[in-house]
């Protein structure tokens, strides 16, 4: 990608601060319910499975697979050419949006269910954004 200055920068809230503190220190953090073991994303201080407020933050493996995507062909100032907008499935279960980077942005190179691993790029002093790239085959 060409220009991270053109990317809309997330604004953390009290409920999501742990996530952004994590990415800044190179960790992808998820939450897990202490009552029913449900692992979930995006962050919130209660379990969307059982409504328990007893939840824990933990470091995810950073491994994922490619669930679905498009390749945007319209120009965007942050990118040099067509780029993927993807949803990945984390090894722990939750899914998240991302761009798949460090790989050709073509249907031939982006194969559903291919193994991916997280990597981080700074957008500002406080916000480091998680991206995914090929690698890190899940066990």
């Amino acid at each position: 990608m060409a220009n991270t200055a053109k990317i809309p920068v997330p604004v953390a809230t009290p409920e999501t601060l742990h996530f952004w503190e994590g990415t800044k220190s190179g960790e992808l953090r998820l939450q897990k319910c202490d009552e029913c073991s449900h692992v979930y994303f995006p962050p919130r201080p209660f379990c969307p499975g059982c409504a328990s407020r007893k939840v824990s933050i933990f470091k995810a493996s950073g491994k994922a697979t490619l669930y679905s995507y498009v390749i945007n062909h319209r120009p965007h100032p942050a990118f040099d050419g067509p780029y993927s907008i993807a949803v990945v499935e984390l090894e722990e279960g939750p899914r998240m949006m991302t761009n798949i980077i460090n790989v050709d942005q073509t249907p031939e190179a982006l194969i559903l269910d291919m193994p991916l691993e997280v990597t981080f790029k700074p957008l500002s002093d406080d916000i480091h954004l998680p991206y995914f790239q090929p690698g890190g085959a899940t066990s």
Binding site: I7, P10, A12, P42, N72, H76, I85
Partner: peptide
């Protein structure tokens, strides 16, 4: 930027519905 979409989707530079509404279809095809 503080909404959940603003934090966890917008930074990936989707450009409106043509690049968001369409994301599920490759999975549907497979």
């Amino acid at each position: 930027g503080a909404s959940l979409q603003g934090q966890f989707e917008s930074p990936y530079c989707a450009m409106g519905p043509p690049t968001i509404f369409t994301i599920p279809f490759l999975r549907y095809m497979k």
